[in-house]
Amino acid sequence: MTTSAITKVSEQLCFGGKQIRYKHQSAVLHCDMQFSVFLPPQAETARVPALYWLSGLTCTDENFSSKAGAQQFAAKLGIALIIPDTSPRGDDVPDDENAAYDFGLGAGFYVNATQAPFNKHYKMYDYIVSELPELVEAALPLTDKRAISGHSMGGHGALVIGLRNPERYCSISAFSPICNPANSPWGIKAFNGYLGEDRSQWQQYDASLLLRDAKKVAPILVDQGSADNFYPEQLRTASLVEAASLNDVNAEIRLQPGYDHSYYFIASFIGEHLHFHAQYLK
C-alpha cells in the first residue's frame, strides 16, 4: 500500500490502535528511510496530535516501539507516535571509518552536517523538523499539534529541536539527554566530525547553551537516572539545570534514584511523559 510518498511495510494491531512501519525516499537525506508510527484508536474517526520520538545511539525506529510500552498510554490519550530512524542508511551513506557506535550510521546526532563526506546525507535536523512532518501530516490523520521527546542522543535532539522551533512544538521532554554536547566526549567527537572544528557552529545544537538565551520556551520535562553509567560525564545534566535556572523557564528536571540508561527506565516513566505532553496537545 502506498499513501502519498510513503509505503507501508508492516502493520500490527496494538491497544486498539495500529503500529505501522513505513518506508520512503528521502529528498533531504538522499537515501531510503524507514520510520514507525502508532496511530491510536481515535485516529479512525478524527485527526489526532502527534508526539515525535527521537531514539539514541545505535537505535533504529523499532527500539522505542517494541521496548518502551508507550502505545498503551498513547491509545488512551489519543496521541499518535512518530518514530524516525536515528541516521541516514544505505550502501552509499558514509560511516565512521572504524564503524564506531557513536558516530556515523545509527548516530546522526540530529544535526545538519557541513563536513565532507557527511554533508550530503547527514541532514537529520532538516529531516525531523521539515521533511518527515510534511510527509506524515499529508498522508495520515494528524492535526498540526506536535510534541517532541527522546532518549540520550535523541533526548539531545528533542531538546535542541524543541528549543529552536517553539512555534512547531507544544512541549518537550527527554530521558537521559546529552544536555551539553559541546563539552561532552560524545558530542565533541560528533560535532568535530559533522560540523568541523569551529565551535561557534556547535552552539546551535547544544541544549544548555540554547536554553540560556531562549526567548520563548515550550514546557520541558526531563528525567535522568542516578545510576546511569553515562551520568554525569557524557550527559552533563547539571548544565541544563543551570541554564533553566538562569532563564527562569518552565522546565522540570528530575533525578530518579537508582534508574539507569536503559529502556527499563524509559518504560517506568513513559506514561508520565505522555500525560505531560497530552495537556499541551489539546
Rank of each mutant, 00 (worst) to 15 (best):
S176N: 08
P232F: 02
S176Q: 05
L39P: 06
P117H: 11
M153E: 06
Y280H: 13
Y169M: 10
Q34T: 10
I6V: 13
E131M: 13
T143Q: 01
T45E: 10
Q201K: 15
S4V: 07
A147L: 06
T58M: 12
H156K: 12
C59D: 14
L81E: 07
L13Y: 10
F64W: 09
S239W: 00
I128H: 01
L57W: 04
Y22W: 09
S152D: 04
A243I: 07
A46I: 06
K123R: 14
K120A: 13
A251K: 00
S36A: 10
G258P: 01
P41W: 14
F118K: 12
L235F: 01
T3A: 02
H24L: 10
F15V: 02
S200A: 09
D248E: 12
L13E: 15
T7Q: 04
L39S: 08
K23E: 14
M153T: 04
E131T: 09
G271L: 03
A99L: 14
A238L: 06
P49Q: 07
V217L: 11
Y169W: 09
E137R: 11
L235K: 00
R212T: 13
S208Q: 07
G157Q: 05
A107S: 15
T114D: 11
G150A: 09
A267T: 02
Y264C: 05
M124L: 15
L210R: 08
T143R: 02
K120T: 12
A116K: 15
S200N: 14
T58W: 11
A27F: 14
D95A: 13
L195D: 08
H275F: 06
A43G: 02
A107Q: 10
P257K: 01
L255V: 02
T143K: 01
G271Q: 03
L81P: 07
W53C: 04
L51S: 06
E252G: 00
S66R: 09
S26M: 11
C170T: 08
N63E: 12
D32R: 13
A138E: 11
S245M: 07
D198F: 05
Q42A: 15
G225R: 00
I82M: 08
A75D: 03
G157D: 05
A218S: 15
A116M: 06
H275C: 11
S200K: 04
H273E: 11
D228W: 06
T58D: 04
L51K: 01
D91H: 08
T143G: 09
R164D: 03
L246I: 05
E44D: 15
A218K: 07
I6R: 03
K282S: 14
G225Y: 00
T7P: 11
D248P: 00
A139K: 06
V37M: 01
L240G: 02
C179T: 01
A70R: 03
K8I: 13
S262L: 00
H121R: 05
F118Y: 15
Y127M: 06
K18W: 04
D85P: 06
G271M: 03
P257Y: 01
W202L: 14
D144P: 00
A116W: 02
D91C: 07
E167D: 13
P181K: 07
D91L: 13
N98D: 14
G225K: 02
